[in-house]
Write a protein that binds this DNA or RNA. Structure first.
Lengths: 143, 143
DNA sequence: CCTACTTCCTCTAGCGACTAGAGGAGCAAG
DNA sequence: CTTGCTCCTCTAGTCGCTAGAGGAAGTAGG
């Protein structure tokens, strides 16, 4: 017998993707519908577990489902140039860098807020003050 | 005449919050329903514009609508202690710091991916490779 | 074999914070 | 008067799930 079969619960345990999420991935076409047992239960093979792990890892890295779809398609045709995969990862890197920059600005502003807070009344609270008056603020755009 | 009146479009221009979003904020109770003109149009005053700017700024800083609700309530009673506002900002700061840390790990991993990419075939593509095999990856958890 | 328990099935609805679009009315300028 | 803009309400869609109802199938123990 070549490969063992797994229930959806096994697949969830092995991949770290929750059971309803696996069904959801099937619904949106990220995971092919597996064969069913006599009783109508989904029966996954090794390849499905790998695919799920791939998806999960990519999701953790913040790739969108559409990007993952592309990456999975690429993965299936290994003779192709990997320029597309590279481009997707690069795009994502740029996005992450942008987010880090914007969150750093954010952190600075929040630090200014809580450091400036005199713990007195709301009337002279720096937190509220900065929020109310954009002019007092160094922050300009969040992405 | 004490204060001028503004259309929803004016309010959108002045605050940077889009027209449908202003109506949405009214619907969820972030912004009080303004009086209407004879023709049934919303008519905003200065205080509404300020409130909208406050909301927008807080949203840009990543505060959730519920947190903003609390902050707005605090703002309206300036004699109170500002400890609550301080706590909300501090929580948000911690969250932002966590996100920065996790995105930095992410960036490192994406850099490793694109640097390792030999621009050859998908078969030996580092991007796909790392995604497929979590073991090859330094990353552990995203928040 | 029966029972209890867990896991699975499908289906619908909800989350947050909007955004898009339909279909219609008001209003100001030329 | 007509063009064209803004405004109105309403419903439905976005993304990536998550929750819950109601029921069937499989499994372990007595």
């Amino acid at each position: 017998m070549p490969d063992a079969q797994f229930t959806i619960g096994d697949a969830a345990n092995a991949s770290g993707v929750k059971v309803p999420t696996i069904r959801y991935y099937e619904e949106i076409g990220l995971l092919p519908p597996p064969p069913r047992t006599e009783g109508g239960r989904r029966s996954y093979g090794r390849a499905d577990l790998d695919r799920l792990s791939f998806i999960r890892h990519a999701r953790e890295l913040g790739f969108e489902v559409d990007a993952i779809r592309t990456l999975l398609a690429l993965q299936e045709t290994p003779d192709q140039s990997c320029a597309a995969a590279d481009a997707i990862a690069r795009e994502r890197l740029i996005e992450v860098e942008r987010r880090i920059a914007s969150l750093s600005a954010l952190r600075a502003e929040l630090e200014r807020m809580v450091e400036g807070c005199s713990h007195g009344h709301v009337g002279e609270c720096r937190v509220i003050d900065i929020l109310a008056d954009h002019g007092k603020c160094a922050h300009h755009r969040m992405v």
